[in-house]
């Protein structure tokens, strides 16, 4: 008996919430399109004149973040990791936090695997970039967009 009443009520609510959620998504997906100047400058400082190619670097971040304070991130770079051919550094940069640097790791072939996990802060919806330096001096780049739904929209819930 309560079931059908519940169903109706839930159905009504779905409509209400759907419109609320729609508004929110509009607000928080302002495209993080053009790479801001600061991040480009940092990338240039890191890479100099070396070639930068797309690929090999994979960023794993949740596409939709529950709280920008602590965002789990795994970065994996494809590489044989031999003495002759390995990753020497992985830089993670972003375009909208107060400054572009996030974290940099330095490694060599003895790591066996060019991958690390950490947790980062993301102040806003934006693009995160992973830049890997190889032992031959070349660079590879991978990126991912992250939507930060401001969990503090109801600041205390």
């Amino acid at each position: 008996m309560t079931t059908s009443r519940d169903l109706t009520r839930r159905a009504a609510l779905t409509g209400a919430a759907a419109s609320g959620a729609g508004l929110l998504v509009l607000r928080s997906t302002q495209p993080a399109s053009a790479t801001p100047e600061a991040m480009r400058a940092v990338m240039r400082a890191i890479t100099g004149d070396a070639p930068v190619r797309k690929g090999r670097v994979q960023l794993d971040l949740p596409p939709l973040v529950e709280n920008g304070n602590t965002v789990p991130m795994t970065v994996t770079v494809e590489s044989p990791m031999t003495a002759l051919d390995h990753v020497t550094a992985i830089h993670v940069l972003n375009e909208k936090n107060p400054q572009p640097y996030v974290v940099t790791v330095h490694l060599d072939h003895r790591a066996g695997k060019a991958a690390f996990s950490t947790r980062i802060k993301l102040g806003d919806t934006q693009r995160v970039v992973g830049l890997a330096k190889m032992s031959d001096g070349s660079f590879w780049i991978g990126e991912q967009d992250v939507i930060v739904t401001i969990a503090s929209c109801l600041e205390n819930f």
């Binding site: 640097y101 790791v105 490694l107 060599d108 790591a111 690390f116 996990s117 950490t118 947790r119 802060k121």
Partner: peptide, 19 residues
């Protein structure tokens, strides 16, 4: 064997796993 440079954008109570 490994080094990491952290910025303020690393979350409180830094967590790092590597190989």
């Amino acid at each position: 064997i490994y080094r990491a440079d952290f910025s303020p954008a690393v979350a409180a109570n830094p967590y790092l796993t590597f190989h």
